[in-house]
Structures are given as C-alpha cells and as structure tokens.
Design a protein around this nucleic acid. Structure first.
Lengths: 151, 151
DNA sequence: AAATATTGTTTGAACATCAAACTATTTGAC
DNA sequence: GTCAAATAGTTTGATGTTCAAACAATATTT
C-alpha cells in the first residue's frame, strides 16, 4: 500500500512538472514567444466566450486583483486582451480576448486535449472510467481540504 | 468520448491548481512562512539523502543554473540549505539541506502522501491499480512529447 | 604551458506577486 | 436627496522568479 502511494505520488509530481515544462517550451517555439506560461493561464481564465470581470478572473486564478491588473496591462500592450468598461456599472472592467488572444487560446486548449486524448485512447472504455473516478476522488479530497483552510 | 476528454482535462487542471494553492497556504500557516512554494520545490529537489550539485538540481527543476544560484542564496540566508564546495573538484558546489530544511522536507512529503493516501483509500485495490495505470500512460505520453522537443 | 571546457556566480531586464494606499463609482442609511 | 460606507479596479514599493550573457575559478586537453 505504501509502495502504491509513493508510485502514484511520483507520477503526479512528474506529470505536473512535465505539463508545465512542455507548455512553456511549446509557447517559446511558437509564434507566441512573447507570452509566459502565467500569461497563458490568464488568457485561459479569461476564456473564449463570455466576458468576465477583473475580480472574477482574479478569483479563478487565485491571485489578487492588483496582480491581475498588472498582468492585463502587459497582455493589452501585447495585443491579446481587451479591456472594456461596463456600461451598467462604470467601476467594472470586462476582460475579453482579442482575435489573436482567441487564436492562442485554441492552440493551448488543443495541447491539453491532445494530451488527455492520447492517454485515454490507450485505455479501454472501462479503464478510462476508472481513471476519471480516481481523479474525481482526488479532486473531491482537495476541495474538502481547501474548505478547511482559513478564508 | 469528447465529453470524457473534457472531463478528465478539467479534473487535471483543477487538481494542479488546488494542489499548488493548498501547498502555498499550508506553508504560510506553518512555522515556515518565509518559504515560497518555488523554494519548497527547490528544497524538495535537493532532497533528504545524497548531496547534489547545483547543475543536477537545476536540471531536475528545469531552470537555469543562474536562477538556482539566486534562489539558493536566499535559502542559505534563511537557514534551509548548506553549500559545500566539493573537495575533489573545486568548481563543484554540493547542495544539502540543513536540519531545518529536512524538517520542512518531511512536512511537505507528508502532505503529498496524505493527499494520495486519502484518494486511494476510497478506492478498491483494483481501481487504484487502474488509476495508476492511467497516470503511467499519461506520464509516458508526456515523456515522449518532451523528447520530441528540441534540446 | 596554453587553449578549451566546465561549473557556478553576478548582473540587468522583464514578469509575478502581495499588501496597502488610492481613485472612481455605486449602494445604503438617514 | 445627501453623505457614509462598500465595491471595483489601479498604482506603487518590496520581494521573488526567471533568463541570457558576461564573468571568475578550476579542470581537462592538446
């Protein structure tokens, strides 16, 4: 049992590191060299479809609003994000991707989907169901742990 | 199938973010408030047992040697890491954890192990085997992807 | 012995992050 | 309706992270 725990733990850690590393390198090799991995995640959190406020995106990313403002300044300057003041509440800023931002979003999304697709294709229907259940358990445990943390 | 991919992908992303967030918050609440999550991973890469050179640790972390030198400066100042010049090759620096560094290492390791243990305990022997197989597949795919990247 | 290679450090520039002070706007209390 | 309080976002100062490039010290090769 202890052995199993170490093995699963090891795979998880490796997977985390590899995904980040591959994402980062892939970006640097693409036409989007001016985007860091953190900026990529900000673009991902802003999302393709609806507009989202600064506060919403900051919460989703788990960073402060101030940090996001700075990052969005850079992304606007580089042409990936648009800032739009809300008409109904002039305090609110809606964030949205530019055309170029959406192009990058789709590229990144494809990387993620291909990664998972490849894994699942090697497994049967039943195994992939169990894998998902395992991830769901892990996710549930983490959500419960998060709730126990102060504020 | 497409739905399954989205679900697995979603869980993976959430798990990544949650683990990082929980690790960070747990550190801030502990007696180790002066250690960031990045520094924690550096401590983890230096490891409990053998000494490792600066180059080895940098490679493991996927950062440049220069970046590691700066980070190790801080960790030495804060009392978590010792630098020892190799006797056999005076260019080489061996990195090792101090007593306090080892204490933190064990705390972090326990967090990881508890996280996985909880998940596995909720599953039967067979399911945990399948979960591991899934993670192994994913890991294999990532390793192959990594090899295809230039240097 | 001199040229070359290796190991690590330093430095300058850009980004990431937070907390706290600040501005603009909206909401609520009276 | 006005004024106080709350809310949304920005700015700023401090610290950390990261890389590339220049550098220093040491080891290896020729």
């Amino acid at each position: 049992m202890d052995q199993r725990i170490n093995e699963v733990n090891g795979y998880l850690v490796s997977i985390f590191n590899d995904v980040l590393m591959i994402e980062e390198r892939t970006l640097q090799m693409s036409q989007f060299k001016d985007v860091s991995i953190k900026e990529m995640h900000t673009i991902d959190a802003i999302g393709m479809y609806q507009e989202h406020t600064t506060s919403e995106v900051a919460k989703k990313l788990g960073i402060t609003v101030g940090t996001l403002t700075v990052s969005v300044n850079n992304l606007v300057r580089k042409g990936y994000v648009d800032r739009v003041r809300s008409e109904t509440d002039r305090r609110v800023v809606q964030l949205a991707l530019t055309k170029r931002g959406r192009l990058l979003y789709r590229l990144h999304d494809k990387f993620h989907r291909d990664m998972v697709k490849e894994t699942i294709n090697e497994m049967g229907e039943k195994e992939s169901e169990v894998l998902m259940q395992g991830l769901k358990n892990l996710h549930g445990y983490l959500e419960r742990t998060k709730e126990q943390l102060p504020d």
